[in-house]
Write a protein that binds this DNA or RNA. Structure first.
Length: 416
DNA sequence: TCTGACTAATGATCCACATAGGGTT
DNA sequence: GAAACCCTATGTGGATCATTAGTCA
């Protein structure tokens, strides 16, 4: 199935915008949603890599594929062998985030590409080799970046990103907090070195692609992967693709060591009745972690926890408002999990501190909401829909013009 | 516990025809 | 190379039928 971007029609779509009910490539996403303040508020998320039509909710770290709820359920909900796959929620965003911010949002994009890897990941990979190698201080105005070491020697990068990712839903700010591996913090914060070498290097084929070099010489925090240069990027796509195919680009721009490709990486879903560790994690943000509904009502942040080989990060996003409807669940993976209670794949909590009645109530609410949920149908050709809407029928089937019909959508009459 | 009957949910199919898109002139 | 023309495949919604899932006796 060869789906294309709904806007340009030739690039492979990467993100899904529910407000527009459109699948867009990154370039068009940028163009469309930078048009005005309203469009910037559209929340977008990754596109399901299986059905290519629904917003992805989770990322299966084992299959390295982003899945919508339906495909995830199909792939993991019923299969005993796959149901144990580790999955992480996929957060949505609004505004016009830089690729650095996107990489923070979706760190798995920088993992090693699987054979036949999607072009969307290539696009992101291409973005990463934009000419703009800047410091973290080059985040857009209104954003503040601070980098600290905590007591454990772990760097903490706090990106107050009000103007971008956090402003889409309820106006509240979202704090992106990354705890980077130790080696990454050796780089002085705020240093601007525009003389940093570009990707190409004459000595070796892809010298910068050496992971060791990357980790020691490259700091993701210093790379502003600005999306403003899409055309330029695509214009040189061949060279960059060549680089990418050699397996380097994604590692080049791995969010320090924060990569979902790390087999130890664990994605956890903040849901009622889920694992204790995660529930603990959301406690600070939510005064009442025992109820998914209360989570929603509090408009609290969903928290995504990763534990990695070296990196330990927590991402918190404000992705939900009381305006969210049932259909909105698909917009934001984390929020959907919050809203729906325990997901079907959630393993039994061995250390459950919840009462069984509370748990069963959550399951009931989940089933009820799942039952009433309707997936959007994507109409590709409005003109055809408009015609079908007024076409006369016999028992639901279209009839030739002038033939007898038993159903006329326009006046609900019969011709016989 | 197994089986059959029943109900509900879900998916596939059909229809005509405008239109997109590729191929040819 | 551009334009005109021809041809084929596609997609659109409601009704219907077939299949699957769930419940209960």
């Amino acid at each position: 199935m060869g789906y294309n971007c709904d806007f340009c029609g030739h690039q492979r779509p990467v993100v899904y915008c529910r407000s527009d009910a459109a699948c867009l490539c990154l370039s068009c996403d940028r163009n469309v949603h930078s048009a005005n303040a309203l469009s910037r508020r559209h929340s977008r998320t990754l596109l399901c890599e299986r059905c290519n039509s629904q917003p992805a909710l989770v990322r299966c770290t084992e299959e390295r594929v982003s899945l919508c709820e339906n495909c995830d359920w199909i792939g993991h909900g019923t299969s005993t062998s796959n149901s144990t796959h580790k999955r992480q929620t996929i957060n949505c965003y609004s505004g016009c985030p830089s690729s650095a911010e996107l990489s923070s949002l979706w760190p798995f994009f920088w993992q090693s590409p699987a054979p036949g890897e999607s072009t969307c990941e290539k696009e992101l990979g291409l973005m990463s080799i934009t000419e703009n190698i800047e410091t973290a201080s080059s985040f857009p105005p209104g954003n503040t970046v601070s980098q600290n070491k905590n007591s454990a020697g772990v760097a903490e990068v706090n990106i107050d990103n009000n103007a971008y990712m956090g402003s889409g839903w309820d106006g509240s700010s979202s704090i992106l907090e990354l705890r980077s591996p130790p080696q990454a913090i050796d780089q002085p914060a705020g240093v601007t070195d525009t003389s940093l070498p570009k990707v190409s290097c004459p000595q070796t084929k892809h010298p910068l692609l050496c992971e060791d070099d990357l980790y020691h010489d490259f700091n993701m925090d210093e790379v502003d992967l600005n999306l403003d240069n899409y055309e330029e990027l695509f214009g040189v796509a061949l060279n960059h693709s060549e680089l990418f195919e050699n397996g380097g680009i994604e590692s080049l721009f791995r969010m320090n060591d924060l990569s979902a490709a790390d087999s130890d990486c664990r994605g956890a879903v903040a849901a009622e009745g889920s694992s204790v560790g995660l529930v603990n994690a959301i406690q600070p943000a939510c005064s009442n972690g025992a109820s998914a509904d209360s989570v929603m009502s509090n408009k609290t942040d969903s928290v995504l926890c990763f534990t990695g080989r070296q990196a330990h990060s927590s991402l918190s996003f404000s992705g939900l408002t009381g305006e969210s409807s049932g259909a909105d669940y698909q917009d934001c993976g984390a929020s959907s999990m919050l809203l729906m209670g325990e997901p079907p794949w959630c393993p039994p909590c061995t250390e459950s501190s919840f009462q069984s009645s509370t748990r069963s109530n959550a399951v009931m609410r989940y089933k009820e909401k799942k039952k009433t949920r309707k997936f959007e149908k994507r109409v590709r050709y409005a003109s055809r829909k408009a015609r079908a809407d007024v076409r006369k029928r016999v028992k639901g089937r279209f009839v030739k013009a002038g033939d007898a019909y038993d159903y006329d959508p326009l006046n609900q009459t019969q011709s016989f």
